[in-house]
Design a binder for these strands. Structure first.
Length: 377
RNA sequence: GGGGAGAUACCAAAGCGGUCAACUGGGGCAGACUGUAAAUCUGCUGGCGUACGCCUUCGGAGGUUCGAAUCCUUCUCUCCCCA
């Protein structure tokens, strides 16, 4: 079973500190989950992820793993944990986000979605049911429901229709989940997803629908897909007013350090985002003092540490000038160091948020940190 | 000693009478990135101006022409081949 214990709630706000227990270990919330789409957190070795970054749970992606290496290889390996030698929990996205991000290569129907593979153009059909089956083969500790993620500027009519499709899929996915069993002897949870675009009434009814499914945790999807930030915060608030307090809440795909702090303040427990790794690979460093573009000329002769306050050894071991040199020279070590740093920073951020919630100081710490973290330096 | 080729912006390299402030690469500078089709993509890169534009450029000097990076003369320098 997956359980969630709420330890502490910030006195002023809705921020929560808790513990999720899975058969592969505990997850202290709020938590950030590094994204490892195809069975690898890009550029980061497993032991670094475990010991240095201290990731408690990582993501995988059903669509990508299904295409390559494929269910067969993963099943023969004994599941994704065995395959990549990762012993802590894994959450897998269902491919729902690819319904959105590969919009040009897919066809939606009530039954499911037909994709054209981005790798070889081949046709594949995903349904709420077969996506559960594939995630059983992957063996993730938390499986995600198949959903449709409408774009941020979806009009009401589309958002409404899309939500009905998603809810139909949630019902079917949930039923199939209840009917099937793990393949490797470890419990797997299944999280449904709240959609509803930027419309409070849709979000509220979607949250109620999801709550009624009685899953072990719930997710908020369809945010940070082009809508204004304030609208995203409003949707999180509206949704969390309805979602049950005794289950973890997962905000999918978000976001910037400031986004995460604001969402924690509105009662979110779990996050994932490609930003620390992708933007890190592209030279953006997130620090407690603000955002650095390490490729900029101004760091050319700055021999100070990457981040003097950083929590990863790379922060003090390498200088900004050296890291800039690696990026400018297109050396592979540059993106690797940046990824390790950014992930360690994200994990530090949520860990500190947790401590501040428990200490009762979250609100004041947050308002100061949101400012620091968002500025460009 | 004889014969030939060439000098273009930071580098390489197109252009061979007007549509050239000059193709394209590289380099440089900056930007984007939110459940990863991304170790990717975009913009700028003579000066001044937001912009229409104006000014100074294609080895040096002179010339032809309404008009030259492009044609002619000459100087300087580089490279290749044969002895």
């Amino acid at each position: 079973m997956l359980s969630f214990n709420l330890l502490s709630t910030d006195v002023r706000g809705k921020a929560r500190a808790g513990v999720i227990r899975t058969e592969r270990g505990e997850i202290e919330t709020p938590i950030f989950m590094p994204v490892g789409t195809v069975g690898t957190v890009k550029g980061v070795l497993g032991p670094v992820l475990t010991d240095d970054i201290k990731a408690q749970i990582i993501l995988g992606n059903t669509y990508h793993l299904f295409l390559r290496p494929g269910n067969d290889v993963i099943q023969k390996a004994g599941g994704l944990h065995q395959f990549m030698n990762w012993k802590r929990p894994i959450l897998t996205d269902s491919g729902g986000f690819q319904v959105f991000s590969l919009a040009d290569n897919r066809k939606l129907s009530d039954e499911g979605v037909t994709f054209r593979s981005h790798i070889d153009g081949g046709k594949h059909f995903f349904s709420p049911e077969n996506v559960v089956d594939t995630q059983r083969i992957i063996g993730s500790d938390i499986m995600m429901a198949l959903d449709e993620c409408p774009p941020g500027d979806a009009d009401y009519q589309y958002a409404h229709k899309s939500l009905q499709l998603t809810q139909n899929w949630l019902k079917r996915g949930h039923a199939h989940f209840e009917k099937t069993k793990p393949l490797y002897g470890k419990h797997q949870a299944w999280f449904p997803i709240v959609q509803g675009a930027g419309y409070p009434d849709l979000r509220r009814s979607a949250a109620q629908f999801v709550t009624d499914l009685g899953a072990e945790g719930n997710a908020i999807g369809g945010l940070s897909v082009g809508e204004p930030t304030d609208l995203m915060y409003e949707m999180i608030e509206v949704t969390n007013e309805v979602l049950p307090e005794d289950k973890p809440r997962y905000l999918m795909g978000v976001g910037t350090p400031a986004n995460i702090l604001e969402a924690i303040d509105r009662g979110v427990d779990m996050f994932d985002c490609v930003m620390p790794t992708r933007n890190g690979r592209n030279g953006m460093l997130f620090t407690s003092e603000g955002i650095i573009n390490i490729k900029n000329k101004k760091w050319e002769n700055d021999y100070s540490p990457v981040d003097p306050n950083g929590t990863s050894w790379v922060d003090r071991y390498y200088s900004k000038a050296y890291l800039r040199h690696l990026f400018v020279s297109r050396e592979l070590l540059g993106p690797q160091i940046a990824s390790v740093h950014n992930l360690a920073f994200y994990l530090w951020l949520v860990k500190t948020a947790r401590e501040e919630i428990i200490a009762g100081n979250f609100a004041s710490w947050k308002s100061k940190m949101v400012q620091n973290v968002a500025q460009r330096i």
